[in-house]
Design a protein around this nucleic acid. Sequence first.
DNA 1: ACAAAAGTGTTCCTCTTACACCCATGA
DNA 2: TCATGGGTGTAAGAGGAACACTTTTGT
Lengths: 248, 248
Amino acid sequence: MTIETNTAISVDCAVFGFDGKSLKALLIKRRYSYEDLSSEDLKLPGAMILENETLPEAANRVLEEFTGLTGIYLKQTNIFSAPDRVSEKEMEWICRFHGVNTRRVVTVGYYALVKLNQGMVNYTTRKGAKWIEVDSINSLIMDHLEILADALSTLQKEIVQTPVAFELLPKKFTVYQLQSLFEAVLGVEIDNRNFRKKILSSGIIYPTGEFEKNVAHKPAQYYAFNKSVFRKAMKDRFRLSFINNWTY
Amino acid sequence: MTIETNTAISVDCAVFGFDGKSLKALLIKRRYSYEDLSSEDLKLPGAMILENETLPEAANRVLEEFTGLTGIYLKQTNIFSAPDRVSEKEMEWICRFHGVNTRRVVTVGYYALVKLNQGMVNYTTRKGAKWIEVDSINSLIMDHLEILADALSTLQKEIVQTPVAFELLPKKFTVYQLQSLFEAVLGVEIDNRNFRKKILSSGIIYPTGEFEKNVAHKPAQYYAFNKSVFRKAMKDRFRLSFINNWTY
DNA sequence: ACAAAAGTGTTCCTCTTACACCCATGA
DNA sequence: TCATGGGTGTAAGAGGAACACTTTTGT
């Protein structure tokens, strides 16, 4: 019985952004080619964990490197621990690229949400990263596509139960932007009247009194997220009979 | 920038069982004392991962060791990666006990569900493990109490959305047993008439035609879980407008 | 007879759903 | 004047919540 301690642990981050139309993920080109591994291959931003670092700290370090931001929304998804998840060739590339010497890498998936505006696009572009429409991503290196799919499915679960939607929108947003975000993330169409009714009656967003300007249609009002009402709603939920939330 | 590859990865399993009255967890005494670490200290079953093993494989290995069963319900919860989650003294104990030489252990929490019957209790007792009422557990070694709390909260979320309840019950069970399980896991009281109405009309359990014998009250009918109806119900759910499941 | 759990119906009310038109603005 | 998205109400139906008594059995 051999105990394996020569295992490196890495984090890989699926970073999502919303441009008002579609859901995008932040991808980077594999830097440096190695044999027939192409530098055109796309990957998720990631890193090996350092000696005195927790996994969330490592993930935050990666996020700061590529977005320049700290304190952005971050949540662990799954662990990918198959001994053969990294091919021999990829393993050689990893050891060379990261300057490590290890026989195995277990990676922990994270998903992160950022407010995607022009400044963010400029920043990530300078870092050599690109925002790609999630629906159009069909190939990434190693098991990164699986990590991304996992992250998307986590986002879909969370967006209907927690206020993560507001992590993807500017501080002030229109009801339509919020609705479009739900539609993009969940891949469904939503009736606008019912959506407004539900979201506004819940009180978790409030009108700011400001309106769009210079738009070729009736200007929409900007709303903002009401944290305290949301927290109250969460507490209330636990006072309801459980049967309320039961979904069999 | 030092890359840490001398990190061991372990799994710790919170194993739950239901005895008809209360929810219990499987705990083992720390074997072998070391300095002032007591052999009376309780811990979750766990192990270091082996060289060619995935994390779920390691968790299943631990479960088989303590319960004699394979293929039991198992799900990953969280990762505990704080560099100081294991004190120096505990670290020495770990290296001695597991025969490893490492400076850091990152652990992955799993939760597992087993059918708790007399045979199971006999088996685990022979293995030196004990079933302890979850409500009464208030101290475990290292961060195992946190791992257990995490697992419980995962179970509470899952039991109302997936058929995990049936992993904790015998193949044939009464409606009351099922209700008691929900009450024990969620810590709530449930109206019996509404519970029956909901569970029976959903069709996810069906009457077997068998009844209790030798009980000092009207004998209850035994029911069984209907997998195919459950799967159909899951599919249907995704045809509903998302707003249906929305919980703001 | 009594103790103990099994089993059963109804009413009220809230929430979800489905659905179509006019409004304000810039081009 | 037209194109674009903003914004509004109502009626029908389904599902959740609250609530109390009779039945069957063993002791």
